[in-house]
Nucleic acid binder design. Structure first.
Lengths: 335, 335
DNA sequence: TACATATATGTAAGCGCATACATATCGCCA
DNA sequence: TGGCGATATGTATGCGCTTACATATATGTA
């Protein structure tokens, strides 16, 4: 390549990177040679000296969870527009897998990792940071120590709860996410606080912990039905699930018991995944700007890489109430 | 690191890789030093000499299409179990994005790319191969030149069509995928051949091309309803969509027109994405082993890397008929 | 004309690793 | 005891690139 153009490797490098002085003529010869040889820079070799790999990792529990593909897409779009590649890492919420991956990413010198934490471990993250790897959290918060992009879960849960209350419900069950996640805790707070503020007593027997997966929603619902008779005003007349997947499970359980949604019990989800608008009854839910979250996370991490010492960045997006058929009965609806 | 252990870098390298001769004592000192310093090999630097990056790319149209996350998961699981990382690349079926990405991957020296092609271009793939990058196609075939993992689309489409025919339908519309994709062509063949073999005349006015997305299914259905009165026996009484997403769109269009599924027109999908079992009516469809496809694709590509010159590998998985409510009316069903 | 600057290019070192090659020690057999 | 093979380790080179530094020419200024 250098010979082909009749110049030194240094000049080639300068020509290709537009750094330093290169005569017009030399540049053209280099470019011509590059084209002729179909030459492509070896990015890995470059990273050896530059320290930058132009790679970021997206570490999340499971792409198969419909919440994440949109986030991933957002990350990827912003990243690729800026010359970055993104590695996809599924942890299954498994501590071991998570730390294995982080080690892998460290030894690959990724520039940054966008992290939907499933086991809250600050030391894990600090290790990355100490290594000079930028980190931004998405969705799953971890206190106020790290850059984060999330939605306002408390507001979202209040939106949901208030909607239910507005419909006349006072006995509202809550199917929570994994208790150790801030995301779950926040949604729970929103639920409880909304109740309180309306003067509705909070009954902890109405709260069951799930794990964000469909089956756990089904299970939780069964447990709930076991403990209470929902045809009884002292039972419950509505359920708010901390994510749509669990809401789907809950609806299924309800139907299996011959209960009608929303007539017998109203169901509210969270996330607004694609399923929500297609299932029957269509699921009322709290929409999160998933794609934007990913996009902004990528933007944030790239910004962070350019100033590692800058002050903490926090992007809190607003969730939105989407009312469909699982909470209010439509009269004269087509379907 | 080398000094810390009191040996040369060569010995460190040998100790860490288990190559060449290293005394037990030296190895232990190296390992101890590594632990003490929290040393991690720089994989990129290594790839400079070894030529291997232990990275594979997964290039597909859009992770947001529910068919792909499962495939991606399969790829990732096998890959990470074998020390590989996977880069995620969305092309949107856009020729430009696709080739941009391939260039990017070349300059990053990925070891292989698992490719769900959207624009069929052999030269594109040959360029990769010439570069020493392994390629295996998933789902989208391209003649018999390359390694591929797919399902038997002809068989699948026949399964679907025969099911409909068995139900008494003779006027079966078909919403096809993009015509340039082998996947679409094969499903179309299966549809037409099944019809033929039952002595049912094939009416090309009943075939409309979509693009695998939900909206296009909706549109196609509208077009179909415009051309035919489906309450007329000479219109159509069933629709087979080449994928579930389009089937969902079709069902929506049907409902909007006040038509009932499956009573007025039966609908059959393809893929068995998560939505299929949750929507109402639940969608009858052809299930593809998505996760396995990804898993096997990763297995295949890693095998290929170890013997670049080996004979072509072709894995054709079998699709499965899943009968739900969109084709047959359930009596006494709970919901 | 003499010298400071801007422009242009090459040389060489180094990034973190693997490895060919040279060297050194040891055990063992003829 | 001389010599060979197995074992162990260091030195040096190169992977493909960037960049500090040296060098060289052109341009401008006093």
């Amino acid at each position: 390549m250098a010979e082909k153009a009749g110049v030194s490797v240094a000049t080639v490098s300068r020509a290709l990177n537009g750094s330093g002085y290169v005569s017009k003529e030399a540049r053209e010869r280099v470019l011509a040679a590059a084209r002729a040889l179909d030459y492509h820079m070896n990015v890995n070799a470059r990273s050896l000296t530059s320290g930058k790999t132009y790679t970021i990792a997206l570490v999340l529990p499971d792409v198969t969870n419909p919440f994440f593909p949109a986030v991933a897409r957002g990350v990827e779009d912003y990243a690729s527009d800026n010359g970055y590649c993104v590695m996809l890492c599924n942890t299954d919420g498994n501590s071991r897998k998570e730390s294995d991956y982080l080690a892998m990413l460290r030894s690959r010198k990724v520039d940054g990792v966008i992290f939907a934490v499933s086991v809250p471990s600050k030391s894990r993250i600090n290790t990355l940071l100490d290594d000079g790897i930028a980190v931004v959290l998405v969705d799953r918060d971890l206190g106020d120590s790290y850059d984060i992009v999330k939605t306002d879960n408390i507001a979202g849960a209040m939106l949901a709860t208030n909607h239910l209350v507005g419909l006349g419900h006072t006995r509202i069950a809550f199917i929570s996410g994994p208790a150790q996640l801030a995301t779950s805790q926040e949604r729970f707070s929103g639920y409880r606080d909304a109740l309180m503020s309306k003067g509705i007593p909070f009954d902890e027997r109405l709260v069951i912990e799930g794990d964000f997966r469909m089956e756990s929603g089904h299970e939780a619902m069964c447990q709930l039905m076991n403990g209470f008779d929902c045809r009884d005003r002292n039972g419950f007349t509505a359920v708010f699930a901390a994510n749509d997947l669990m809401a789907v499970g809950a609806v299924t359980a309800l139907e299996e018991s011959g209960l009608r949604v929303p007539t017998d019990v109203a169901v509210m989800g969270y996330d607004d995944i694609n399923i929500a608008s297609v299932m029957r009854p269509r699921l009322s839910t709290i929409a999160q700007p998933k794609y934007e979250m990913g996009w902004i996370a990528a933007e944030t991490i790239i910004k962070r890489m350019s100033e590692p010492k800058g002050s903490r960045m926090e992007e809190i997006l607003q969730p939105m109430l989407v009312v469909r058929d699982s909470t209010v009965e439509r009269r004269g609806a087509l379907a």
